[in-house]
């Protein structure tokens, strides 16, 4: 099995790795790039725990091959805060207790950020449908939805 040399930009950093063509972007981020914040919950695109942005599009990194990331830009949970300053979504998730075990949290934050970048003033229903592909088994979603709505409000005020 020959490996492929992949050059990408991950969270603003130039990154190179060797990927077996069968490895997913999720495998590569976790095992080759050392970014384990992106989680695998299902490997079939049904849970959203592996959400990342690929060239600005929200995707499940388990449904992208590592080799497909060549020449592209990847943003993960590790790139969400700016230095010490958490993204408002991250802050609101802590404040609202929008996580219990925290395993689905990185994927939900990445997905929610993609929503707010596109739609700064979503309705509760829009948030719920946008996040329908992010399974959370702990919270019943209530506090997650509240945190996203609150972060959106704060971002609108700041804008």
């Amino acid at each position: 099995m020959s490996k492929h040399h992949v050059t990408t930009t991950v969270n603003g950093d130039a990154v190179e790795f060797l990927a077996d063509p069968r490895e997913t972007l999720l495998d590569c981020l976790r095992d080759h790039v050392g970014l384990t914040g992106t989680k695998e919950g299902c490997g079939t695109g049904d849970c959203g725990a592996c959400s990342v942005e690929l060239d600005g599009t929200l995707v499940c990194s388990c449904l992208v091959l590592g080799v497909e990331a060549n020449g592209k830009t990847v943003n993960t949970i590790e790139g969400m805060a700016s230095g010490d300053a958490l993204h408002p979504l991250q802050r609101k998730f802590i404040e609202h207790a929008a996580l219990q075990c925290g395993f689905c949290t990185p994927g939900i934050l990445v997905a929610a950020k993609a929503l707010l970048d596109k739609n700064p003033d979503p309705t509760e229903e829009e948030v719920r449908y946008w996040l329908a592909g992010n399974l959370c088994r702990c919270t019943g979603y209530d506090k997650i939805i509240r945190a996203v709505m609150d972060a959106a409000a704060e971002l609108r005020e700041a804008a």
Binding site: T57, L58, V59, C60, A111, A114, G133, N134
Partner: peptide, 9 residues
Amino acid sequence: VGSTQVQGR
């Protein structure tokens, strides 16, 4: 077809 994430692909 699938989630928002799946829609990206």
